[in-house]
Amino acid sequence: MLNIVLFGPPGAGKGTQSEKIITKYNLTHLSTGDLFRKHLGEGTELGILARKYMDEGRLVPDEVVIGMVGDKIKSTPDTNGFIFDGFPRTVAQAQALDHLMEEHKMSISGMIALEVEEKVLKERIRERGKTSGRTDDQDENKIQTRINVYLEETLPVAEYYKAQGKLTKVNGVGTIDGIFADISNVMDEY
């Protein structure tokens, strides 16, 4: 079973590359952003709570996120594997994910980290904001907050997987297909 953490800052291209990975490797996409949007769209209590944090550009608390991820894993027993997109975002979440995977007799195969410089990230996020309708993609302060949160709270997750020998960095700048070819080369080694 192939279980991949696709990692990178906001605007690195995780969503775009996830789609291509899912198609080629027949993996189940597990995006906390999608889980949150589902709850937001349904107006659930969790969705309302998540909206508060997301609108401020902050991370949703670990226990909420981990519970949602655990439910998704349990509800998808016949998968070829998972691609975790935007999760884990903290070392505590990475540790909890390892524990969840062990409970289901699985493990993380590897982390693929897309690397993109900050100037390019901001350009991509602003451009996405023009078409997505996401308010957090249109506000310069929120964009900077999201990047700062990534650098301070999320980037250490890469070190966590590096210590396990599971981290591979991929240049996230180039053509979509070129970046995907680099990702595929890494995944084919797992």
Rank of each mutant, 00 (worst) to 15 (best):
K122P: 07
G178Y: 10
N148W: 03
P156G: 04
T16R: 04
E103Y: 00
G8M: 08
F7C: 01
S75E: 13
R134K: 13
A163L: 07
G43V: 11
K52V: 15
G81M: 02
A113C: 10
K20H: 10
E118R: 15
T145E: 05
S31V: 11
L35P: 02
G15I: 07
G86R: 04
G81C: 01
A113K: 14
S107G: 11
N26M: 04
T90W: 08
D182C: 10
L100W: 04
F84M: 01
L114E: 02
S31R: 09
Q95M: 12
I179T: 08
M101W: 07
K24L: 14
A12I: 08
A181S: 14
G15E: 05
M106A: 08
G13D: 00
E189K: 15
L2T: 12
T76I: 06
A50P: 04
H99Q: 10
Y161N: 02
E42I: 10
E159T: 14
M106W: 00
K105I: 03
G41A: 10
P9K: 08
A163I: 05
R51Q: 15
S18P: 03
R51N: 14
G172K: 03
E117Q: 14
V116Q: 08
G47E: 06
F7Y: 10
R128W: 13
R37V: 11
G13C: 03
I112N: 00
L40T: 13
I22E: 00
H39T: 09
E42A: 15
R126Q: 15
M68I: 07
S75P: 01
I143D: 01
G11D: 02
D139G: 08
E42P: 11
V149F: 03
G33L: 09
I21Q: 03
E152K: 15
A94D: 02
